[in-house]
Amino acid sequence: MNELVWIFISALLVNNFTLSMFLGLCPFLGVTQKLETAFRLGLANIFVMMITAVAAYVLNTWVLIHAPYLRLISFIIVIASAVQFVEMAIKKLSPDLFKALGIFLPLITTNCAILGLALFTTNKGYGFVEGMVYALGAGGGVTIALVLLAAVREETRILNIPKMVQGTALNLIIAGIISLGFMGFAGLFGSH
């Protein structure tokens, strides 16, 4: 149990996917103009990561022990099709949920945070439960990062910023400061 809590906190804060491992930066910089959109993108991320964890576990246990060189290709194809399949199922079963997450799902399927999650779970040798907890923590961490950046960016719109600094440069510097804050979590678990 203790181990699971550590995996969760580690993925959520200490090794935050976006702010300390630089995974999934494209949506982080691209889709954070509005707080609400950023939050929904984060939820979609958690969702896809859970599917990814299941897919990675199934592939690792039954397929890839026989053909390890197919790891990358099979991860990408299986994750992309699993997400598409679940997307169709949601569309049928819960139109509300589809409306909230729908447009983001294809956007994040080929995101490096998703493939990164699959690769890291494999490298760390997590079992099914650990993998799911790890996915939940990582997705939560991405959501936190997206929401924080979007919240600051909403404020900057009413400020008078020199033209030269506007755009990606400003976002990167804000992200750097947020990331600086997250470095403070590094000592959270003492000897770990």
């Binding site: 702010l19 300390s20 990167l172």
Partner: peptide, 13 residues
Amino acid sequence: PPGGFFTLGFLLL
């Protein structure tokens, strides 16, 4: 990690 964000931010500037 923060150094990465800062360096690219300032290079873009």
